[in-house]
Design a protein around this nucleic acid. Structure first.
Lengths: 240, 240
DNA sequence: TGGCGTTTTTGATCTAGATCATGTCTAACT
DNA sequence: AGTTAGACATGATCTAGATCAAAAACGCCA
């Protein structure tokens, strides 16, 4: 299973929860088929829509990162999904969004009117592929939240930022001797990471410190982590 | 938001994470359009497919309950979804199932060849609706796993078995004076519930005992719980 | 109806991670 | 370069839920 889908992920810089396959039926294809396709830009920390808003539009992320979260009435927050380039958001089963969508970075989006999306078969097929991707990612994240330790959660999160590595389609380290290394940009604060991983900010911070002390990572900027030993982190994700 | 979808849920015995709307484009409609549509029956605790199996078929649950779960290599298990009547399973982004599907009760299924499903527009639309439903349920469950206490998790689980109550579309108790009461069938062992809620079997058992002591529920059989005060349980779900 | 394996409940103890409390770093301004 | 507010790290303590260990209840078949 580990290497089963390597064929889909040969391109370059494809993350685990990423989109090589989506791209093959991506924007270029369906955008032409739409009557009008508008673009929209939002800045980091702006809200695109709130949970409960009337769901009239879908969005595809052209560049940037968006988080979807839900709040409990007492203020507890859970980030339920991270939407990256090529992925979509704004799906709704009835008339309202079930999550709030907030930009983690400056973001460029394609706006798709829900009415129009329903009419286009190509669009429907694209939506379908995005939904299947999101389902798989959510299943994986459910395991993380239900059964993994803090160390495993943070390690899994770091691995999810390394293209072509960890979980399905892992290519293993490059040839012998090459350093098994990569710098990843988090584009999330410790609080946002905590709310994504079902932890507190302090626990996230402590795990990061522990990985640093073990020499597995180096914190370059708050937002940017150099992974000194990718396989080492991967061993801590709980999937081995 | 609370009462927004009441219109969809008027029929009778429709659970929160249930399917009033799906039924309107349900089996009757698309089954006729398929070349052949086979039925399949499996017994409680039989496995329909394993994680990693080649994904050639979709299934719709006609009667019974199926759980989808994932295992970590050391044996930890997380139940990621419960598939009930009218809902579908067997979705896959590439060639393999990402979860194991095991029957909780004796189950009757409609079998749909993946190739055929792709060809039928009606089927596609039905699949799409199921995916949207599952996404919403997964988002909700993500909040439960990431942020809710054991008491809140078990209460939420119980409420999910009460038709038309809890969360969206809650109708509130019947008229004044009517007992706010219902017997629900779990169709899951304590271990399966624990693996669904991200708890241990002992914690589930203790919370159930606590609810019993508080007079909110009565355990009729191991598998069957009488909720003596539905609103009382709902108050414990964390969503108020 | 009685025996037995399985599931569930209950109790005692332990611990990972939360919570509470400071201290330190960073980055954006003067 | 110096100031400052927000983000991050670290330390001390607490606790919800896990773990370990029996006991009790269930349900099944002879």
């Amino acid at each position: 299973m580990e290497h089963a889908q390597a064929a889909y992920q040969r391109s370059e810089d494809v993350c685990i929860n990423d989109l090589a396959k989506l791209r093959s039926v991506g924007r270029e294809t369906w955008e032409a088929g739409l009557g009008q396709s508008r673009r929209h830009r939002i800045n980091a920390h702006e809200v695109l829509f709130y949970e409960g808003d009337t769901a009239e539009r879908l969005y595809e992320v052209v560049s940037g990162v968006i988080m979807l979260y839900k709040l409990l009435p007492d203020g507890r927050r859970q980030v339920v999904y991270i939407v990256r380039e090529g992925d979509m958001l704004g799906f709704s089963r009835h008339s309202e969004y079930d999550c709030t969508a907030e930009a983690l970075t400056d973001t460029e989006l394609v706006v798709i009117e829900a009415r129009e999306a329903e009419a286009s078969a190509q669009m429907q097929s694209h939506i379908n592929k995005c939904l299947l991707l999101q389902m798989e990612n959510l299943h994986e994240h459910t395991v993380l939240l239900g059964r993994k330790s803090a160390l495993e959660r943070v390690s899994t999160f770091l691995m999810s930022l390394v293209p072509n590595r960890g979980g399905n389609g892992c290519e293993g380290p490059a040839e012998e001797g090459r350093p098994d290394t990569r710098t990843v940009v988090l584009s999330m604060t410790r609080q946002e990471i905590a709310d994504y991983l079902g932890l507190t900010i302090e626990t996230v911070s402590r795990v990061v410190s522990q990985l640093k002390k073990r020499g597995l990572i180096k914190v370059e900027k708050q937002d940017s982590i150099h992974i000194a030993n990718i396989c080492g982190i991967c061993q801590l994700t709980g999937i081995h």
